[in-house]
Structure formats: C-alpha cells, structure tokens
C-alpha cells in the first residue's frame, strides 16, 4: 500500500490582483465597453490573488523549488527517491522528458526512474495512482511526485475570465511504501477515472503542439503582449466546462464511495481540485456537503491546475484538520476532458 507521507509547495514571488487584471484587460481587449469592477470579478470565482512566474521561470523550476522544500521541511533524504513523476501541461521540451532533467537539477541518484505525465487538473490523481501502482507492484519504495504548471504563460491579457482564475505553482509529494516519522502518513485507497475526449475543443491550449503549430502569422497578433503567447493560447468554453463539472463531480464521488463501500457520511473532508470558488460552492450545495467538511483555499491562491489538490491537502494538514481515522476524498477534473479521484485514510 502507498502512503502520502509529505507535501511541500512553492509559489512564484509575483502575484496579480483583480485590479491588475482589469487594468491589463482595458489595454488589450478590443471590446472596451465591457466594464467590470474588482469586486464583480471576485464574485465570479472568489479569487482575489493569483501567482505569476517570471518569463524565465518554468513549471519545472517551480516544481524543483517545491522538491527542495520537501527535502528540508520533512527531513527527507533525497537519496531515498527512486522514481520521479513530473505532472504538467507545461513540459520543458518535446524531448527530453522533463523528469529526467529534474533528476540532474535536484542531484538525485542516477538509478532513478523518471517519467512525465501530460495532464492538467486531474494530474495529481493520475500521479498518485501511478506512484501507488509502482509501489504496490514492488518496483520501488519511494516516489517523488511533482505537480507544477504555469498557465499564466498561455493566457492572453484580453482573456479576463481565464486570467482571473489561473495561477502558477509547484507542489512536491512523497509517496512511499511505509509511513515516515512525523509525516502526513495517509494511505491511498482505490482509484477511479473518467475520460471524454469529445471535449478536446472545450478547454485546450491552441497552437501549442503538433496539431496546427504556431506560425509566424499567428504569433504576430501578440507582438505587443508581454510574453507573445509563445507557448500557445489557452481557450475555454466556460459554460460547457461549468456544466461538465456540475454533472461529473457528483457522479465521480458516488462511484468512489461505491467502490470503497462507503457512504457520504463516512467522509471527513472533501478536497476537490480548486477550480473556481463559486463553482465549487455550487457542487458542494448540490451534494449537500457541510461547508466545514469541504475545503476551499482558492481566495489567495487561484486555480493552480495539478498543484491545487496537494496545496489544499498540505494546508489542511498543517492546520491540524485531520484526526486518526479520517477519510479524505480527493477529486480532480478538467482539461481532457478528464476526471479522477481517490479516498485517502489517516490511519
């Protein structure tokens, strides 16, 4: 059985306020007549602040900072790491594998295994499931799972809705075959997944890969922008994604409870991907989950993609929310379209 033993995370130094976003929007948006106040923007997603990495800083860099913190904060010997899983939609290259570069950056042993998982908001669940599978099958004992992303690099300043939601961050999670001294020490349960590739165009980074790569003409439209959207542009059909989340998350939770033979009352806390505060509250109300059992930490952080669940889990642990015997349901959902979850146990 695999255990989540430690989590540390890292935010870039710079953050953006709602006022900053509105100011940029007024400069870059063509429809200047649309006026919105900082408070109205807050009401849409319950976010006041989100982080933005400098142009020279990548998702891997944020992940490396988080990994260095996990070794220090939890007193982990980096030589114990036998496998690196890097989860991100912002890989360094199409080759080599970013996790391979991380081995060298962190000075990990050259005997480690290293893979990337290209996933967004479901990414932490995927990373946990692969780490757990590696451990349960006896291949390794300690996996360093890094979930990091830099969505701000692929959002145009005129896309006020996306810009107000997404945030850059990195998280590092140690998954092991046994508990550690003074660790989080939560055992992993069964996993469930879902995929609907028909949603390809509802949420995607256009012009970011081999399908319709960015050409000179496409890039020219961003000449006056801060980063020229060199890595593509994130587009989202928000109504469809909102409905997707509202439809999918309750079913995902139901399926998880079924496979674990539990009822909703057996769950002490729900930690969903921190997508959008208002939307999360809708889901909570629909599922009749008391707010004190439903963790939302998005206000001062934003939606950090695959890093959001470990950040919320780490904060809740540090706030001493969890007791012996607690079961905590984790659920990710988003780009793909994709969803997945698991229930962890504080034994």
């Amino acid at each position: 059985m695999g255990y989540i033993n430690a989590i540390s995370y890292y935010f870039p130094e710079d953050f953006i306020s709602n006022q900053d976003i509105i100011k940029d929007y007024q400069v870059f948006a063509k429809q200047k007549e649309k006026r919105i106040t900082a408070d109205e923007l807050y009401q849409q997603n319950w976010i006041r602040k989100r982080y933005q990495a400098k142009l020279s800083v990548t998702a891997k860099d944020l992940g490396n900072y988080a990994a260095k913190k996990i070794f220090l904060e939890w007193d982990i010997d980096k030589d114990d790491v036998e496998y690196i899983i890097f989860v991100s939609d912002a890989l360094e290259y199409k080759g080599p594998t970013t996790a391979c570069i991380i081995q060298n950056d962190l000075g990990l042993k050259t005997t480690v295994g290293a893979i990337d998982i290209l996933h967004g908001c479901t990414g932490f669940v995927y990373g946990l499931s692969i780490a757990n599978a590696l451990i349960v099958s006896g291949q390794v004992n300690n996996v360093l799972l890094i979930t990091a992303d830099t969505p701000t690099k692929i959002i145009h300043p005129s896309d006020i809705e996306l810009r107000s939601i997404f945030s850059d961050a990195g998280a590092a999670t140690l998954v092991s075959n046994q508990k550690i001294k003074e660790g989080i020490n939560a055992s992993l349960g069964k996993f469930t997944f879902g995929t609907d590739g028909s949603g390809e165009h509802l949420l995607k980074v256009e012009r970011s890969g081999t399908r319709h790569p960015a050409d000179v003409e496409w890039l020219r439209q961003f000449l006056n922008d801060r980063h020229n959207n060199l890595g593509g542009r994130l587009i989202m059909k928000s109504s469809a994604i909102f409905l997707f989340a509202l439809r999918t998350v309750p079913r995902l939770v139901k399926k998880l409870l079924e496979i674990e033979n539990l009822s909703q009352n057996d769950i002490s806390f729900f930690i969903l991907h921190q997508a959008n505060g208002q939307m999360l509250d809708f889901i909570r109300k629909r599922m009749k989950i008391p707010s004190e059992q439903f963790i939302v930490n998005i206000e001062e952080i934003g939606n950090t993609v695959s890093a959001s669940i470990p950040i919320a889990l780490c904060d809740a642990f540090r706030e001493n929310k969890f007791s012996q015997g607690d079961k905590v349901l984790l659920a990710g959902f988003g780009i793909g379209l994709s969803w997945g979850g698991t229930i962890i146990n504080f034994e």
Binding site: S239, L243, K285
Partner: peptide
C-alpha cells in the same frame, strides 16, 4: 445556482 445552470445550459 439554477439561474446560472440555465444560462450555461442554453449557451452550451
């Protein structure tokens, strides 16, 4: 919440 769901449904 239902108002928002209706708006999202009709848009989608």
């Amino acid at each position: 919440m239902h108002a928002l769901i209706i708006i999202a449904l009709i848009d989608t």
